[in-house]
Amino acid sequence: MNIFRLAGDMTHLISVLVLLLKIYATKSCSGISLKTQELYAIVFVTRYLDLFTDFISLYNTVMKLVFIGSSLAIVWCMRYHRVVRRSYDRELDTFRYWILLGVSFILALVLHEKFTLQEVFWAFSIYLEAVAILPQLVLLQRSGNVDNLAGQYVFFLGAYRAFYILNWIYRYLTEQRFTRWISCVSGLVQTALYADFFYYYFISWKNNAKLQLPA
């Protein structure tokens, strides 16, 4: 464990807490893409298949349970909670995410560390996570005005993977046997997808204005 990875995990945790806060405090999920939340639930379930077979540390197990539990709770809330579900922007959240699922799975069948069920699903979850934010970014562009909590949620979600890139650089320099090309390349793609969001987020923060994404 290094400071970059810890910062990354904490930032990721903050993004989940911000989203839970938004949904429970405002009883609304406006501006949040259910498709991105469902993709993230799939990411965590397929990535943590080793939850009960490989014990790394208490921290690792607890965080896995938190991410799986919170992502499923958010999907459940947005689908079935009688108050929250009414504020879901159904007609704006129309990204055809089957494409993302299909491409990620085919890529995982071709590019993986070992051809075992667990490793193929792990690679699938890495590729899927890189593109899982797309429905959310499209929804934010379509809905124009971005409420603070939704903007902060996406910001922290993007920042966490940026910390992980620093973690991979650090591990590459300090651990001679560290090669995680699948994670590194995917993580770079993932963070790059946020680049324009970060730019507009920074502009809005600098001008102390509402976050406006160009349609």
Partner: peptide
């Protein structure tokens, strides 16, 4: 040696 390709990252 212990199998080192266990994914220790979240």
């Amino acid at each position: 040696i212990e199998e080192c390709n266990v994914h220790d990252e979240l």
